[in-house]
Structure formats: structure tokens, C-alpha cells
Simulated scan of single mutants.
Amino acid sequence: MKEHQAWHANGFLATLAAIAAAAAAIWCFVSGNADDGSAGMNVLGVVLLLLALVAFSSLTVVQPNQAKIITFFGRYKGTVSDSGLWIVVPFTVKSRMSLKVRNFNSQKLKVNDASGNPVEIAAVVVFKVMDTARAAFDVDDYETFVEIQSETAIRHIAAQYPYDTYEDSSVISLRGNADEISGRLLAELQERLSVAGVEVLETRLSHLAYAAEIAGAMLQRQQAEAIVAARQKIVDGAVGMVESALQQLKHHGIVLDDERRAAMINNLMVAIVSERGTTPVINTGTLYN
């Protein structure tokens, strides 16, 4: 099934013609009764009245961003998408369909990611109908079809990627590559919804989190990784400061032997890396009896 334009003509002219036919029919009835019941005038009046009723029943109004699907005794005759008052083929069924942009916000779905961790995920899908014939006849209810296929695509995408990557930053993850995940979700969803004549305009992840049963453990893991990264930064800075201190002592002509050099490095590293303030121990000399 593919959409095509149905025959339609100016409805205002058809309305004027129908009004004129109805007025002529009334005149024929009045004239026929005045002429002692002339059968010819009455028959003409009935014909004109039937033509007026057929014309009025063929009129249809199409609102902006709306379409009328025309079917004639079970056969698809076309779609009228131009807004205005139109006259179409008589004795047809004119079904209304919206062409406005709409969005669907999925429920929070619990899915196992590529690493096997249960995560909660949800997405917003922005779409519109592009082919009214497919939306009306190729699927039972295109809105329900969009909802079910959207949730299926979200589950499929979420199961292909891990929630986050901790060792390899080049691996695509749900949290770290949200834009790329949204793009792949859009491509897969468009492939699924093309049969319903629906165009997907945008997809965005609206919710992403670990499931409640592992959220605490994953939070501890993230905190541990943050602590390790901070410690690594502190150690790198401490090594640089100790190296700078030794170079300055050498520049000023202060030469330390290996034992004192090692003790100084140890004391500086402890003072810099320690989480708490250090308490120095002052050597005042050796007491001899």
C-alpha cells in the first residue's frame, strides 16, 4: 500500500451548486403543486434534491496538518492532505488522520546490558506520519505499533552496549556515548517503523541508571575508582615536588649522601601524600653521659 492523492475539487463551488440545486428542487415542488400536481415538475424536483444531497454528502473539510483517507466500498481511492473545503467522490468513507509531529515517552525498562548488569533505561521518540495509506492499512493501530516497536528497539540497543566502560575508553557505552546511542536507536527504529509509514525525527535517552539491586555496589565501585584516580594524581604531583626540591638543593650547593637523600625523599613523600597533617619529629642531637 502506498499513498497517492485522491480526486478532489473546490468545495465552495460545489456547495454553491448544491444550494442552487436544492433551491431549484423546492421551486419545482412549489410549481408542481401550483399546476394541479404536475408530475414532471415533481420528478425534476426529486432529482435535483437527490443531486443536492449527494453533493452535500461528498463535501469534506481538511484541517491544517491533517489528512482525509478516502475509501470507496472497501477500496482505497487516495488521500486528501490539502487543507480546506473539498468535494470528493460520492458515497466514500472519509477517515481522518493527523500529520502533526508527536512524541512518545517510553516507560522505564529494566534490561541487562552487554556486561550482564541490570539497568533501567527510557527514551523519547519524536515521530510523524509520512504515508497515510501504510499507517491506516498496513498496521492495525500505528500508534500502538510505534509504542511497542520503540520499546523493543530500546531493549535491543541497551543489550548491545555496556552501561559504562572502566578500563577501555574506546568502547562505546550507554552513559559515555549518549549521542551515538541515540543515533543508532533512531536508525534501528526507523527501519522498524517504515512499514507503518512513520518517520522518526529524533530519539533521546530520557533515563539511564543502574537497577536498584546493584546501584549501591556500582556506586562503591565508582567511588573507589575516583579515589584511585585522585591518589594517582597526588602521587604524580608529590614525585614532581620531591624531584624539584632535590634539584634546588643541588643548585644551591647542598650535597646529601645517599642515606640522607633517601630519608628526605621518604619524609617529603609522607608529608605530601598523607591525608592528615604530619607531625614533625625534631632531632636535637645526641645526649652523652
Rank of each mutant, 00 (worst) to 15 (best):
V46Y: 08
L13P: 01
N10G: 11
A18V: 07
V47I: 15
D35G: 10
A9L: 12
H8N: 15
A22G: 13
V30C: 04
L49M: 07
L16Y: 12
N10C: 12
M41P: 01
N42E: 07
V47N: 01
V30R: 09
A52E: 00
M41A: 11
M41R: 14
C28M: 09
N10F: 06
A9K: 13
L16P: 00
A25L: 03
N42G: 10
A22C: 12
V30Y: 11
A14E: 04
L48Q: 00
A14C: 08
A39G: 04
L16V: 14
N33S: 10
N10R: 10
H8F: 06
D36R: 13
A20S: 09
L48G: 02
A22Q: 04
L44P: 02
L50M: 05
A21M: 12
I19W: 09
V47Q: 01
W7R: 11
L48I: 02
A17R: 07
A20Y: 06
C28T: 01
F29M: 07
N10D: 14
S38C: 06
D35V: 10
L16F: 15
L44V: 05
A24T: 06
T15A: 13
L49H: 00
L50D: 00
W7C: 02
L13G: 14
A52T: 02
A9D: 14
A25E: 03
W27N: 08
F12Q: 09
N33H: 06
N10T: 05
V43N: 08
F29G: 03
A23W: 06
D35T: 15
I19Q: 06
W27C: 08
V30G: 00
V43Q: 11
V47S: 05
A21C: 14
G37C: 09
L50P: 00
A21T: 02
T15S: 13
G45W: 03
A52N: 04
G37L: 14
N33G: 08
A52L: 03
I19L: 14
F12M: 15
I26V: 13
N10A: 07
A34Q: 14
G11H: 02
L48S: 02
V46P: 01
L13R: 15
F29Q: 01
L49P: 00
L44R: 01
D36P: 00
F29P: 03
A34F: 10
A52F: 02
A34I: 07
A24V: 07
M41S: 10
L53I: 12
S38V: 06
L16G: 14
L44Q: 05
T15D: 03
S31G: 10
H8Q: 10
